Simulated scan of single mutants.
Amino acid sequence: MADDEEVVEEAPEVVREPSAESEAGLSPVEEKPLAPPKYEVRPGLGEKFQAQNVREIILSTMQEQLTGRQYRADQAPRWAKSISNAVRQRCQELDMKRYKILVQTTVIEMKGAGIKSGQRCIWDPETDEYVDDLFRNDTIFCYTIVYGIYMY
């Protein structure tokens, strides 16, 4: 039965550092306890999501990819994927530690009709953030959104 079982407490883990003497077998090995793990629940003061830099990345990437182009249904998925990948890569170069970067790009044809879009997320408003921007020309409407989710 569970009541009859004996509970054994485990000793803290110990790291042994080899020395020149211990390798030869001349002296005992020193024992140092491991430091307790650090749990970062909030980003540091200078480590928050860089919304303004990300907005500039979004806008410049969309302009580089779409300026001078006309909408083509067969090319739109490739453009959206290329914009998303370029934005994500450039955002990761900002080195925002412990942030998961998610990028979503929508490319549609401008025909005079409107569009409504909605997102729903469960997140921490103190650490997580999003940035969005759009690009328009005569035939293309492109909307890109970047989510920065802090990984606890």
Results as ranks from 00 to 15, higher is better:
133 D>H: 14
152 Y>K: 15
51 A>T: 13
2 A>C: 03
144 T>E: 00
25 G>M: 10
110 M>W: 02
75 Q>L: 07
89 Q>P: 09
67 T>V: 08
68 G>V: 03
41 V>P: 01
54 V>W: 01
31 E>D: 06
65 Q>R: 14
126 E>V: 11
85 N>P: 06
113 A>I: 01
87 V>W: 05
75 Q>G: 08
4 D>G: 12
82 S>L: 02
111 K>C: 05
130 Y>D: 11
24 A>Y: 09
9 E>D: 14
136 R>Y: 12
95 D>L: 10
125 P>G: 04
6 E>C: 14
8 V>K: 14
44 G>H: 00
93 E>P: 00
144 T>G: 01
104 Q>N: 09
152 Y>L: 09
1 M>E: 15
87 V>I: 15
145 I>V: 15
90 R>S: 10
90 R>G: 02
140 I>K: 00
3 D>S: 12
2 A>T: 05
4 D>K: 10
64 E>R: 15
35 A>P: 12
94 L>M: 03
70 Q>L: 12
148 G>F: 05
121 C>S: 15
97 K>H: 07
48 K>A: 08
37 P>R: 10
38 K>C: 03
22 S>H: 11
56 E>T: 13
145 I>Y: 06
22 S>R: 01
115 I>G: 01
33 P>H: 07
43 P>H: 06
1 M>V: 14
48 K>R: 04
40 E>C: 06
34 L>C: 08
41 V>R: 14
126 E>L: 11
91 C>W: 06
54 V>T: 03
33 P>S: 14
2 A>V: 05
3 D>C: 11
69 R>G: 05
103 V>D: 00
13 E>L: 12
61 T>Y: 06
97 K>A: 12
130 Y>V: 03
48 K>S: 06
60 S>M: 07
131 V>S: 07
9 E>P: 08
9 E>W: 06
116 K>F: 06
103 V>L: 02
27 S>Q: 12
71 Y>L: 10
70 Q>F: 13
135 F>E: 02
27 S>M: 12
81 K>N: 14
20 A>M: 14
149 I>D: 13
37 P>Y: 02
151 M>W: 05
22 S>G: 08
46 G>W: 02
8 V>C: 13
71 Y>N: 10
105 T>L: 01
151 M>C: 04
7 V>E: 07
117 S>Y: 00
115 I>H: 04
66 L>S: 00
146 V>D: 05
105 T>E: 00
59 L>A: 07
85 N>K: 11
146 V>S: 03
52 Q>N: 09
118 G>N: 15
142 C>Q: 04
4 D>Y: 13
71 Y>M: 12
44 G>E: 03
20 A>F: 14
134 L>A: 04
150 Y>E: 03
118 G>D: 13
42 R>Y: 11
49 F>Q: 08
69 R>K: 15
6 E>S: 15
71 Y>A: 02
51 A>V: 14
41 V>T: 10
37 P>A: 02
143 Y>P: 10
39 Y>L: 11
52 Q>P: 02
48 K>Q: 08
107 V>F: 06
32 K>A: 04
139 T>F: 04
69 R>F: 01
62 M>G: 01
73 A>V: 13
139 T>N: 07
62 M>V: 03
96 M>E: 14
23 E>M: 15
144 T>C: 03
68 G>Y: 03
150 Y>K: 08
103 V>R: 00
56 E>S: 15
2 A>L: 04
131 V>Q: 08
98 R>H: 04
